[in-house]
C-alpha cells in the first residue's frame, strides 16, 4: 500500500469504450516519481486511448486516474503546433494558458528551446517553415517549458527517420535525467522502449488489462547499444510476454 501512496500517477480499474465497443478494461498501473515507464503493445490494443485517459484528455468510463504531480505536460505523435504562431509562441503556449506575463514567457520559451537544442534564429519561424524534426523539438520544448514533473509521450517519434529518432530519444533521456520527471511513454518500437525506460509495461493485445511488465537493468542513457539490441532480441525470441507485440490489426484504430 505504501507503494501506491508514493506513486505520481496511479490508474486503477480503468475501462473505456467507444460507441459501446470496449477498448480498455481493468487497467491498473502505477508510476513512481522520476520513473520512465514505456507502455508497449500491438497496434490497436488501446495504448493511445490509455495515455489520453491518463492525461485527462478523455474521461474514463470506469475507474479512476489519480495524479500526484505539480504539473504535467504531453508530447503527441504529430507535433500539434499552432500553425499561426511562431515557434517561440508555440513553446510559450502553456505559459500563456497559465496566465504568465509576456516578458517571462519569452525568456522561459527561449530557455526551453536551448534545452532541446533548437536554434534561436528559428524561433521566429512558423511551423510550416520548420522540418518534421524541428517541429517535434518545438513540441518537446513546449512540454518542458512548464517544468513538469510528469510527462506523457504518445508515440512522439514514430514519424521521424532512424537517426533523428535516436537523437530525440537521447534528448528525452537527458531531459528526464536533469529535470527528474516521471513519464509514461507509449511506443510500438521495442528498441525505443528499451533505450529510454526504467520499466516496460505490456498492454494486453485486446486491451483487457496489463499483460505483464519487465524491469530493465541499469539507467536509461547508460546502456550500451549492444546491450539494448541483445535485450530486444531476448524479449522477442524468448519472452512469451512479447509474443504478440508485432501483431497488426489495421481495422482497429485506437
Amino acid at each position: 500500500m505504501g507503494r501506491q501512496e508514493m506513486s505520481v500517477l496511479s490508474l486503477s480499474g480503468i475501462g473505456h469504450a467507444y460507441f459501446g465497443r470496449t477498448v480498455l478494461d481493468r487497467i491498473d498501473l502505477d508510476v513512481q516519481p522520476g520513473e520512465m515507464v514505456a507502455l508497449v503493445g500491438p497496434s490497436g490494443c488501446g495504448k493511445s486511448t490509455l495515455i489520453h485517459l491518463a492525461a485527462g484528455i478523455v474521461e474514463p468510463l470506469r475507474g479512476t486516474v489519480a495524479m500526484a504531480c505539480r504539473r504535467h505536460a504531453m508530447v503527441f505523435q504529430e507535433s500539434r503546433l499552432l500553425p499561426w504562431a511562431t515557434a517561440r509562441d508555440n513553446i510559450a503556449y502553456p505559459l500563456r494558458l497559465a496566465g504568465i506575463r509576456a516578458g517571462e514567457r519569452r525568456a522561459r520559451a527561449e530557455a526551453a528551446a536551448r534545452r532541446v537544442a533548437f536554434d534561436a534564429v528559428d524561433l521566429d519561424k512558423y511551423p510550416a517553415e520548420l522540418s518534421g524534426g524541428m517541429r517535434q523539438r518545438v513540441a518537446i520544448a513546449r512540454a518542458l517549458v512548464v517544468d513538469p514533473d510528469f510527462m506523457f509521450f504518445d508515440e512522439p517519434f514514430t514519424a521521424l527517420d532512424a537517426a533523428l529518432k535516436r537523437r530525440m530519444q537521447d534528448l528525452v533521456i537527458e531531459a528526464a535525467r536533469s529535470a527528474h520527471f516521471a513519464a509514461l511513454f507509449v511506443t510500438h518500437d521495442l528498441m525505443e522502449a528499451v533505450r529510454i525506460a526504467h520499466r516496460i509495461v505490456v498492454l494486453d493485445s485486446a486491451g483487457k488489462g496489463i499483460a505483464g511488465q519487465r524491469m530493465l537493468p541499469g539507467e536509461p542513457g547508460t546502456r550500451e547499444d549492444s546491450d539494448v539490441f541483445a535485450a530486444v532480441q531476448a524479449f522477442l525470441k524468448r519472452d512469451p510476454l512479447f509474443r504478440h507485440i508485432h501483431d497488426v490489426d489495421e481495422r482497429r484504430v485506437a
Partner: peptide, 27 residues
C-alpha cells in the same frame, strides 16, 4: 477546426473558455 489542437490544449490544462479564445476564435 483541428480537434488535435483542442486535445493538446486540454493536456496542458486549458479550460473550455481558454480553448475557445486561444484556438477556436483564432482558427
Amino acid at each position: 477546426r483541428d480537434r488535435g489542437l483542442d486535445d493538446m490544449a486540454r493536456a496542458f490544462g486549458a479550460g473550455p473558455v481558454q480553448r475557445l479564445i486561444t484556438l477556436g476564435l483564432r482558427h
